[in-house]
Each structure stands twice: as C-alpha cells, then as structure tokens.
Design a protein around this nucleic acid. Structure first.
Length: 719
DNA sequence: AAGGCAAATGTTTTT
DNA sequence: CATTTGCCTT
C-alpha cells in the first residue's frame, strides 16, 4: 500500500486529522484550510491503511455538487472506483433508504417528491379547503412554519392543544397537509429526512442492518446539519460506528433554515472520546485578507475559537470604495474588472458577491455596458422553471396518471378550456370517492355528468395522456420528452408567447430534451423514466451551461460558500443591506450576518474590493446607508480607501444629499436635527417624504442605521 | 374561461 | 422600481 501518496502535501494538522485512530473525530476547518482534502484523504487512509472496506463507509454532504466532487477526488486519489461505498447528500441517501424500505416507511412504492413550489401549491389547496383567509394567513408562512417543525423533528401530533391562535391555525394546516400528502403519496424535502429518521426509529431491524453495515460515517459541512439530520446520524452511528465530522462554526450561515451550529458543541458530548483537530493554516488568501476576516469574525461571541494564518505574504491592501450611488458602484466594479482583464487575467477568476439577488440587476447593466461577459449563479434553477416543471408533469402523468400533483399542474396548460368550475367538480368527486383526480375525471366523462364543452375538453386531455403513455416502453427517454412537449402543445404555447421570455422557454424545453438524451440511468435494467424523474427531483440541475466561456461570476454571498476566486468584489457593504435590516433586531441573526461577511472575505485569494453606495434606491425610494459595521471592524492598516480623480461632484455629507424642497407640512422637525426614538435610540433626520398623515421621515440612527418611519406614528422626540 | 389591469410585495437557498 | 398576485371585466 502506498501510504506516502495519501500523506503527501499534508500539513501537520491535516495529517493528524487524516490518520487519527481515535474512534470519533471532529475537524474544525477554517476557510481555505483544506477541509475537503482532509475528508477525502481520511477515507483513502481508512481504506488503504486500516483495510476498511468501502462497503462499510458512508459519506454525507449537503449538495449534489459536493458529493460529486468528493467521489471524484476519492476515485482520483485511489485510482479506482469505489463500488459499494455510499456517498451522497442527506436527501439523496434518505430517498435511497425510503425507496428500499417503502413498506416500512409507510409509503407507496412509487412515492413522489414535492419541491417547494409543489409544496406551496398543496398547502394553498389545503388552506382553501379549510376556508382560511389567505390575506390573514399567508400560505408561504404556513409552508415555512410546517417545514420549520419538520426540521425540528416535530409532527403535528407532538403538539398540545394550546391557546395560541396562531399555532392552533398552523397546526390545523399542518394536519391537513400531512393528511393530503399521505393520501397522494408525496413527500416534501423535510419529510424525506424526517421519514428516514422515523423509518429507523420504528423499525429496529432495519436500523440494525445499516448500523452494522456503516462502521465509518463521515459528514461534510457539519455546521449546516439540522436537528433531524443530526438525530439521523446519531441513530445510525449507534454505539459502534466511527464518526468523522468536518465543519466550521464560523461559516454557519444557514441557521435561518434550521441548521444548528450547536450540533458541533453537542458532538463532543454525544460522541464520547472525540478527538478534535483544528485546521487553521489557510492556503487561499493573502495575509491582509485573513487579517480582515479574523477581525470581523472575532466580534462574535458564540465561537469555538479559531484564527486563520498563512505563511504567504501580506499581499495587496483591501480596497474600499465609497460610491455615490449603486450605479456609480457598478461602474467602478466594471472599470476595475476591465483593467483586471487587460492585465492579462481571466474573467472567470473574478467574482462579484452581494447580499441579495436584487443587487445583481444594476451590476449586470454595468457589465453589459462595459461589454464584460458575466455569468449569474443562483436565481431560478433549471428544473424549477415553470416550463420545465410543466413538461416534467406530463412525463409524470405518462408514467402514472394518478399523480394528482402533476394532474393539477398541467390539466389546463396550455389552456384547453378546462376551467375552475369543471376542475372543482373533478376534485369533489375525487374527494368523495377517495380516488385520484384522473379516475374522477374518467368517471365524470364516462357517466356524462359534465356539460358537453367541458366534457370534450377533459376527454381530450385524458386521451392525450393515454396516447402518450401507450408508447412508453417503445421509445427512448428523449423521444418521450420530445413527444410530451410537442403533443401537449407546451412548445407551441411558448413559441407564441411574445418577447424574449417565450424564446428562452422554448430553448429551455429543448435543453430538457438534451438532458434526457444525456441521462444515464443508475440501473440499466429498470425503466429509465422513473429514474430520471427521481434524479431530477433531487437535483436542481444547474450544472453551469456554457462553462467554456470566460466570464465574470456573479452570485450571492451564500452561494459563494465553498468557492474561491483570485479577485473578489463584495458590493453593497452597507448597514441595512449587509447586515440586512431584517437581521438587525436579533443578536443571533446579526452574528450570522457577520459569519456571512467572514465567508465573503475569505473567498478572496489575492485582491478584495469592498464597495458601498452612499445613496441607493431600494424599491423605488432612495435610502441612505452608512458603511457596514463589518467594514468598520477591519483594521485600518489593511484597508485602502479609493479616491477618484475625476469624480462627479459629490455631496460632502449624507445629509446634504438628502435635502429635498417639497416638504410642505410643518413637521416640527428639521433636517439634520437630533432625535430620539423609543426603540432605535438616538439618530439624525436625513429626509422628509410625503405630506399629511402619510408623511415619512428618514432617520439615521447611531446603532440601527437608517430607518424610514411614518412621522405620525414614529413618536420621535427632539433632543 | 381567458386576458387585462390594479394592488401588493419584496433576505439569504439546498434538497 | 419591477415583478408577481388577485380581482375584474369581456
């Protein structure tokens, strides 16, 4: 066995982690410290040195991308493909378990996965059947609440009948939703995990089988695990298996969707005899960048404590640019990118990061103007697009016409004269007979219980699906997809759609056919279509198209986690934007914003630009934000403030740029006046907006940043 | 049943 | 500001 190749190029801490023979291991891996490397090499070590069979190893990640990467790197390192080893995402593994044990999990054999869009539709349907006012009870909120409970492992049956009217209503919806899901044989993402956990809890013999098999469990991005995922891991590990967890508490940025950093703390308690290794040497960034990152994260209180260092040089200072407004900011970034490229660098080595997607619009415009190719990550995912989901719904119906979710989705897409009134009849009958919508529709047509027009429309739809599913076994997958898109009229519908949008949708549909053509089923002996649909449900499908073009990368700070770029811009480093104003009230959420800043800064390898705008229009109205507190936390020595030579005349102070003359009413306050607010404390008046009872006032508070308040209700006191 | 207009509504995202 | 949603008209 070739031990040297496994340990080659590892530093002391990395080697310690890779070779540790303590049963449990916790690797606290700072940004850029070689986390994935350690994970991959540890697996290789176990296989080659400890003679562990790949069959007894389970490696869990969060994203498909990470799991693909891990498998590739292990294959590469060991020079062979590791059959029998389970590598996958939490959701992918849960799905695999539920497929194998559908009976024990109390699921139908062909259960379908709901994505969040499907889920929201279903929640809406449940709420409508309960006659709930959608204004008062937003379905989105109910969906959020239900997922939140499931992430904590809570079923509706776990709740006491309490007095809180909000919780009581949410519970009713939760119950109705659970029932509907059970009836339809569908499960959402959170359910996938919870079911997999309950499968083991309720079936000790199943659990035991997996406990015996997986003697070695390795988890990536451990700080992102939620309560259910952690419980699942603990249950699987039992008392015997060896656990390796790799994570970074400072990079926990998904608390808002249920991730529990506390799991890292519980780990040492729950997995007794854990050996903890910290990876603090950073191989990515210059010293200046790390200094900034360390300074920002140091302000958090809830930390295990790590400090990144590097033996590479100081590098360039961090540039800070105070833009006049967001257009100026974007132009500046485009300008810097142009000189980056003319210096002979590649565009794809540069990234622009921002807190919220809304910021990308102006940046895009500037890049377009400057003719700099760019690529945006995030936003709408391929398999979530409306036209793609419609096409997939046809495929699902071809496979199983009793798929109510798919039926609801496309029964009248493209419009074929089946309206709400007709559909309501179908729904009613399906409820009464506890049959699928499909069966109900058949009955209505056969028994001539519909008006001629509606009946013809429905019959046409039923026949269409029947015809398409008739050829299911004869044709290859891509031809089935082609047929579905063609005969359903979907492609024609989008061709007729005016504007670029229709064009893009047609192209997406064509891309879907391409994806079908390239699809390689895991099991060649089983029918392809169901395998394709399952894969699609668990994969957002944004493998970046045209990766070949050299383009600047635009993405949110969240999606940048795990990536690195020689040149990084973080745009909009302003109070209220970053940290986002929604996170300002709770200290815990503010700490998460700070970790997000830490993630952002540590993406940069050579040069980091921070830019902010003194004036920015958000939702139409202008706001004036001061520079982000995170920037103020960076030591001045590593920052270089950029000054422009040929600037447009720029107001010298925030207040001056805010002066407006249309202030008619006498508000009792003046611009620039010091005021006190019961919640936000002391601040200064920047601007007035509107008249009468709706008059609003912009106040920049010392602590809370700039707020826009209704003057009549703000209860401001002059100081 | 479908298209058009006004009103509401705006973090972060993987599966 | 820009996009999506719901209501209302044809």
């Amino acid at each position: 066995m070739d031990v040297t190749s496994i340990l080659k190029n590892l530093n002391a801490a990395q080697e310690e982690a890779v070779t540790s023979d303590k049963k449990h291991l916790l690797v606290l891996a700072g940004a850029g410290s070689g986390k994935t490397r350690v994970l991959v090499h540890r697996i290789a070590w176990k296989i080659q040195v400890d003679n562990v069979s790949p069959y007894s190893i389970l490696a869990v990640t969060f994203t498909n991308k990470a799991s693909r990467e891990m498998r590739e790197r292990i294959d590469e390192l060991l020079g062979m493909s590791l059959r029998g080893m389970w590598v996958g995402t939490f959701h992918g593994l849960a799905h695999r378990l539920l497929k194998a044990h559908w009976r024990d999990a109390k699921l139908p054999e062909n259960f379908q996965i709901l994505d969040s869009d499907d889920q929201l539709r279903l929640v809406k349907r449940v709420m409508r059947s309960m006659d709930l006012d959608e204004q008062r009870w937003p379905p989105k909120q109910a969906q959020w609440w239900i997922n939140g409970q499931k992430d904590e492992g809570l079923r509706s049956t776990h709740f006491q009948e309490g007095g809180d009217p909000f919780i009581a209503t949410m519970l009713r919806i939760y119950r109705g939703y659970e029932e509907t899901c059970d009836r339809l044989g569908v499960i959402d993402f959170a359910e996938l995990l919870l079911r997999a956990l309950e499968l083991w809890k309720h079936n000790p013999q199943v659990l035991e089988h997996y406990q015996q098999r997986f003697q070695h469990i390795l988890v990536d991005e451990f700080q992102d695990t939620n309560a259910v995922q952690y419980a699942w891991l603990r249950l699987l590990a039992g008392k015997v298996s060896a656990m390796t967890a790799v994570g970074d508490d400072d990079q926990s940025i998904y608390g808002w969707r249920g991730a529990k950093v506390e799991n890292i703390l519980s780990y040492e308690r729950d997995f007794v005899g854990t050996h903890t290794v910290k990876l603090e040497q950073n191989y990515r960034s210059t010293s200046n960048i790390l200094l900034a990152a360390n300074a920002v994260i140091a302000k958090n209180s809830e930390r295990l404590g790590k400090s990144l260092w590097t033996d590479s040089g100081d590098g360039e200072p961090i540039a800070l640019y105070a833009a006049f407004n967001e257009y100026d900011e974007s132009r500046y970034i485009a300008d810097r990118l142009q000189s980056w490229v003319s210096d002979g660098n590649r565009r794809e080595d540069a990234a622009i990061l921002y807190r919220s997607n809304a910021q990308s619009r102006v940046l895009e415009a500037a890049l377009l103007q400057a003719e700099i190719p760019y690529r945006i990550y995030g936003g709408q995912r391929f398999y979530e697009r409306l036209e793609i989901k419609n096409a997939l719904s046809y495929l699902r119906l071809m496979l199983n016409c009793h798929d109510d979710v798919a039926f609801e989705r496309v029964v009248n897409v493209p419009p074929r004269g089946i309206g709400d009134r007709t559909l309501e009849l179908v729904r009613e009958l399906s409820r009464a007979n506890t049959s699928s919508l499909w069966t109900a529709a058949c009955v209505l047509v056969d028994e001539k219980r519909l008006a001629a027009r509606a009946s013809n429309a429905i019959a046409g739809f039923l026949q269409l699906i029947n015809e398409m599913s008739g050829q299911l076994d004869e044709l290859p997958l891509f031809e089935q997809a082609e047929n579905a898109i063609q005969y359903s009229g979907l492609i024609e519908m989008h061709r007729r759609e005016k504007g670029e949008r229709g064009q893009a949708r047609v192209e997406n549909l064509e891309e879907l056919i391409g994806a079908c053509r390239n699809f390689e089923p895991e099991d060649k002996d089983l029918p392809t279509l169901p395998q394709f649909l399952d894969q699609v449900a668990l994969d957002s499908g944004d493998r970046q198209a045209d990766e070949d073009q050299d383009a600047v990368q635009l993405m949110t700070l969240h999606s940048a986690k795990g990536l690195e770029f020689p040149l990084v811009f973080i745009a909009g480093v302003e109070e209220n934007l970053f940290p986002h104003k929604m996170s300002l009230d709770e200290p815990g959420r503010l700490e998460e914003e700070r970790r997000l800043a830490y993630v952002g800064i540590t993406r940069a390898m050579q040069k980091l630009y921070l830019t902010f705008a003194e004036s920015r229009s958000i939702y139409g109205s202008e706001s004036f934000n001061s520079v982000s507190r995170f920037v103020r936390d960076i030591p001045k020595e590593v920052i270089e403030e950029v000054r422009l030579q040929n600037t447009i005349a720029r107001p010298t102070s925030y207040a001056a740029s805010a002066i407006r003359s249309d202030q008619g009413d006498d508000t009792g306050f003046q611009l620039g006046q010091q005021v006190n607010h019961t919640v936000y404390g002391e601040g200064v008046i920047l601007n007035f907006e509107g008249n009468g009872p709706r008059a609003r006032v912009h106040v920049r508070f010392e602590q809370a940043g700039t707020k826009i308040l209704i003057l009549a209700s703000a209860n401001l006191a002059a100081i």
